[in-house]
Simulated assay, not measured.
Amino acid sequence: MLNRDGSKIFGTEHSQFRDMVRKFLAKEFTPYLEEFEEAGMVSREFWRKAGDAGLLCLALPTQYGGLELDFTYNAVINEEFTYAMMSDSLTLQTDITMPYILRYASEELKEKWLPQMVSGDKICAIAMTEPGAGSDLQGIKTSAIRDGDDYIINGSKTYITNGQNSELILAVCKTDVNAGARGTSLVLIETDRPGFERGRNLDKIGQWSADTSELFFNDVRIPVTNLVGEENRGFIYLVSELAQERLSISITAQAAAQRAFDEALSFVKERKAFGKPVFDFQNTRFTLADAKSRLQVGWAHLDWAIARHVDGELTAEEAAASKLWHTETQWMICDLALQLHGGAGYMNEYPIARIWRDARVRRIYGGSSEILKELVGRSL
Rank of each mutant, 00 (worst) to 15 (best):
S7P: 00
F29Q: 02
Y32E: 10
F36Q: 01
E38L: 11
G40S: 04
M41K: 02
K49L: 04
K49C: 01
P61E: 06
T62R: 15
I77T: 09
I77Q: 06
S87M: 04
D88I: 15
D95Y: 03
A105F: 07
L109M: 12
W113G: 06
P115A: 13
G120N: 09
A125E: 05
A127V: 08
T129E: 12
L137H: 13
T142Q: 13
S143L: 12
D147F: 15
G163N: 02
L170R: 04
V177G: 06
N178T: 12
A181I: 00
R198N: 02
G199M: 09
D203Q: 12
Q207L: 14
S209F: 02
T212E: 04
I222K: 10
I222T: 02
L227G: 05
L227Q: 04
E230D: 13
N232Y: 08
R233E: 12
S240I: 11
A243H: 09
A243T: 11
A257W: 02
Q258L: 14
Q258K: 05
D262V: 15
R271E: 13
Q282A: 15
A291Y: 04
L295I: 08
W299L: 14
I306K: 06
H309E: 13
T315Y: 08
A320W: 02
S322D: 03
L324P: 00
H326N: 08
T327S: 09
D335R: 15
R357N: 06
A359L: 04
R363D: 03
G377N: 10
